Computed example of a mutant assay.
Amino acid sequence: MKKLSLTILLITLSFLHVCFASSAVFAGGPVYKERETSINELKKSGFDTLIIWTIHIHKDGSLNINEEFPIIENGNYIGDNDYPNFRRDVASLKKGNSHIKRIEFGLSAAGSPTYHNIKVLLKCKKSQDCDIKKNILYRNFMALKKAFPDVDALNNDDESELDLQSSVKFHRMLAYIGFKSTIVPYSDPDYWNQLIKKVNAKYPNALDRIYLQGYSGGSGNSPCEWNFGLPVSLGLSSNTSSVRNVYGTISKSKLKCPSVTKGGFMWLYDNFENSSLPKDYALAINTALNVKTQR
């Protein structure tokens, strides 16, 4: 009865006001392992943004999804060898009866050497080595863009390296290729603010969203304290936040700093796939942001 009454409340509130906002969800293995159910469920859930979790960069510059299967090596897409439907499924996410308008690839993770490898791979020993177009990272991310033209952005989850010089260079390279960048921090706001400024100074609005972790190490974070000129989405985890908690937390943040809190996201679809929760969480976020969910 409580769940029913909450759902009625959220649906009622969702028609009160319409404004720009974003509801996002991070999703890992189910996107390619349980594609028969996950792709359609994600499209119909009500989330407008999907972040596919996550790409790791190896020492040689190759790209791997979740250390489960390689997708790019030596400037070529090889993901079909393990998951031949992956590219087609990603391309289908924005098509047909889908709420999804934006797709991102996660990049790195806690404990990943990805950004250390970026730092090493972008280091120039000689002036002739500084041509970014000759770098293996440039070649591999060009191949990624060619393989996934519908992917809009790379989601930066650097949780250890935090090297400003190489990260700026790398994300400017992504902008040149045609990718947006986003960040998903939980601490070190000064570092992330500098990254935003330096990337966008060269390519305006290339880094265009902040997904602020409000769980685990980021518990207690407030978008109001991350006012760096970009829309902030507050993230919560299904491990610690019920649908009611999500609605309450994001709506409070929206009321406290409406000009900054422009979205919300859920971590992690893998933990609540193939259930009513994808729609329930999406509706909670959209309603908290006063967004009318399109049906």
Rank of each mutant, 00 (worst) to 15 (best):
G235W: 05
N245F: 02
E159Q: 13
L236N: 07
L93T: 01
I11G: 14
D280V: 04
I285K: 06
A109F: 09
D280Q: 15
K119E: 09
A284F: 01
L195Q: 00
L174M: 15
K125E: 06
D131T: 09
F26I: 09
C19D: 13
V120A: 07
L154E: 05
D48A: 09
P189C: 06
F20R: 13
A175T: 06
V168A: 12
L289E: 05
D152G: 04
N74H: 11
Y211E: 10
N156T: 06
S216C: 13
N64Q: 09
D82F: 06
R87T: 11
W192N: 05
V246P: 07
N290K: 11
T287S: 11
E225D: 14
C124F: 00
L13Q: 12
Y203R: 10
G217N: 15
D48M: 07
A91K: 02
F272S: 11
E225S: 14
S237F: 01
G46Q: 08
E68M: 11
S259G: 01
I100S: 01
S112V: 02
V199M: 04
H58T: 15
N76C: 13
T287N: 06
P223E: 07
D163N: 15
R209H: 11
V168Q: 12
R87P: 00
Y211P: 03
V25F: 04
P113V: 05
I78M: 06
V246C: 12
M173K: 10
D280N: 14
H56K: 15
P113F: 04
Y215G: 10
L6G: 02
W267H: 12
L122H: 00
R172V: 03
S22K: 13
L268C: 12
F179G: 00
K3S: 08
S181Q: 03
A109L: 04
E41S: 14
K3Q: 08
S241H: 15
A110K: 14
I177P: 05
S242I: 08
P30V: 15
S241Y: 10
Y211Q: 10
D129R: 01
S45H: 04
A27N: 10
V151E: 05
E36N: 14
L137M: 08
D48V: 04
F26W: 15
A206N: 01
K256M: 05
L10P: 02
V260M: 02
G229S: 10
C224Q: 12
S14P: 03
G264D: 11
D80F: 05
K197S: 05
N64H: 12
N135G: 06
Q165M: 12
S241N: 15
Y281N: 07
E159C: 11
D157E: 15
T7D: 03
I51Y: 14
T37M: 06
K202I: 07
S62Q: 07
